[in-house]
Design a protein around this nucleic acid. Sequence first.
RNA 1: UGGGGUAUCGCCAAGCGGUAAGGCACGGGACUUUGACUCCCGCAUUCGUAGGUUCAAAUCCUGCUACCCCAGCCA
Length: 573
Amino acid sequence: MGMETTAKKTNFIWDFIQQDLESGRYQSVHTRFPPEPNGYLHIGHCKALVTNFATAEHFGGLTNLRFDDTNPAKEETEFVDGIMEDIRWLGFDWKGGLFFASEYYPKCYEIAVDWIERGLAYVDELSAEEVRTYRGTLTAPGKNSPWRDRPVEESLRLFEEMKAGKHPEGSLILRMKIDMASPNMNMRDPAMYRILFKEHHRTGKTWCIYPMYDYAHPIGDALEGISHSLCSLEYEDHRPLYDWVVNHAQNMLPSAPRQIEFSRLNLTRTIMSKRYLRMLVEGGYVSGWDDPRMPTLCALRRRGYTPAAIRDFIDRIGVAKADSEVDLALLEHCVREDLGETVPRAMAVLKPLKVVLTNWPEDFRDELPMENHPAHPEMGGHTSVMTKELYIEQEDFMEVPARKYFRLFIGGEVRLKSAYIIKADSCDQDENGNVTCVYCTVDMDSRNGSEGAKRKVKGTLHWVSAAENLPVEARLYEPLLMEENAEVEQEDAEDASAPAASQKKDFLKRLNPESLEVCHGYMEKSLGDAKPGDTYQFLRMGYFCKDPDSTAQLAVFNRVVGLKDSFKKAVKA
RNA sequence: UGGGGUAUCGCCAAGCGGUAAGGCACGGGACUUUGACUCCCGCAUUCGUAGGUUCAAAUCCUGCUACCCCAGCCA
């Protein structure tokens, strides 16, 4: 048996579609990505985004971008602009077209009138509370509204009056006439239209009645010729309603789309609910929607995540129907893999410790060449200047070495990257016992590239000249949420009786107080012409992306992600 | 207690009656002027559970259990 040369990657959705194509139910594939413009896109949305775009692409079809703007109370133009920018940034193009659900208001109205005439819809005068009561419960059937069987002419007249603004908000709704006893709550005469005297970001004051999602969505899909409407699992219960709408409006619609649901993305230690993200922004817990700790795309972009990394991540997690929570480590792996290959290396010391090279000639400066990428000579190089005084990382020196420590310590030797081998002789300490300066002797014969450099030295450190450097502010990020089941003992004691569910929801208690650490250090001068958005690997420290907060005097860098660190792990154990 | 879903390694996830892919994480080793990268090696006799059918079951049947979603004039 021959092994297949290319592993065919598919998923249950593609399998369904393949069947649909083979059976002739559909001739081609057309999908849509339908965000509501009431907030910014986050990493969770990317799964739906990529799934819709990649599916169409796989079958040679197109994808539409459609803003689901049927609730003027929550939607703004700011968000439609932001969403389009984010999608473009990710590299997707809505070749199928750009649409707004609000474009279909006239058609929706037309169908609604048709349904009233055909006895499929009626105007209800029950209050919101009464509607809820009449709907019944999960286990008890609902009962018909007293207005359910009112004359067609009456509903017609009332619906026109609703549209004409003659009735106040909440006084009337238009409902589908399906089945108040259905075990599926969605089928108990769902609302089609409600009265809302809100200005819409696109239609202005043209309308004061707005269609509900369950009514407008299938119509929008059908009008756009969508073949497969891919959405998340919570709409599974809505599928019978989706089909009901399509079937009963068939005479006025060009096609009948198929809805397929998949599970949404959850990430460990990450808040994915729009509502909670809003609380973080409005509560001042973060600096804004693009605070680099946020899971929004604008924040990930600012932090230094790349479209390639995000798409690779979505690709790797797969598409299925089981509830899941993906380990953040996978996302981090994806950025490291991308950045590691594409980004230049440079040196920056984030928590500086002064080093004096006692035997270094007083005013001698040595320009040392350094490659931009060890595996890609074509990426060129730059020079780093070595002087008598320099900085190394505080954690790279210990007066007496711990076990397995092969950085600098008194009596120990270490190599300075691309430079010389040095040996620590003594150090100064302040009144608290903190080391303030290390005195070293240089092996002047060990300059990088020379014969004397060909010695085995266990540790290699990054460094920056104390005389020739640029100041840098480095912002180090950790997840916004602490690990599950981590240090909440105090609260736990108080809330011992609280239901687990509510504790889980109380994400504020899980907020990580150390999600942001700001360091002030020094970087080599070659980094001086970095522009906001440029990313480097700061040797041994991680990947850093220059932030727009930077000024002419101070460069600000966001840590995208650290390097893998087997030393830290070994020490912890 | 009604309806709709889901259960395969720590986390994702293939598998579609023929004897458990892959990735991440993790552990070990080699290499190393980044304790990074790269490269080897290891990592489910077992598929929520109990039965049944079969020469053969993660895959078929039956019962049970756990978890998720639904009672917006939100999407």
